[in-house]
C-alpha cells in the first residue's frame, strides 16, 4: 500500500470516527435532557441582561 492509498483509507476511517463521535453525543444528550430545556433558548434574553436599549 503506497502512502496515497493509505491516506485515502485513513481519511475514510477518520470520517467515520467523527461521524460516530457526533451521533453518539447527540443520542446521549437527547436521551439525558428534557426537550423543554434543550429548546429553551430565546432571542434576546442574554441581550436583555447585558445591553440596555434606550
Amino acid at each position: 500500500m503506497d502512502v496515497w492509498t493509505f491516506l485515502e483509507v485513513a481519511a475514510w476511517a477518520l470520517s467515520a470516527l467523527f461521524a460516530v463521535l457526533i451521533i453518539a453525543d447527540w443520542i446521549r444528550i437527547d436521551s439525558t435532557y428534557d426537550e423543554d430545556v434543550l429548546t429553551s433558548s430565546r432571542e434576546g434574553e442574554i441581550e436583555a441582561l447585558t445591553e440596555e436599549h434606550r
Binding site: 435532557y33 430545556v37 429553551s40 433558548s41 430565546r42
Partner: peptide, 10 residues
Amino acid sequence: VHATKVGLVR
C-alpha cells in the same frame, strides 16, 4: 432538575 435555560454562549 432542568430548571436552567440553555442558550448560546458569549
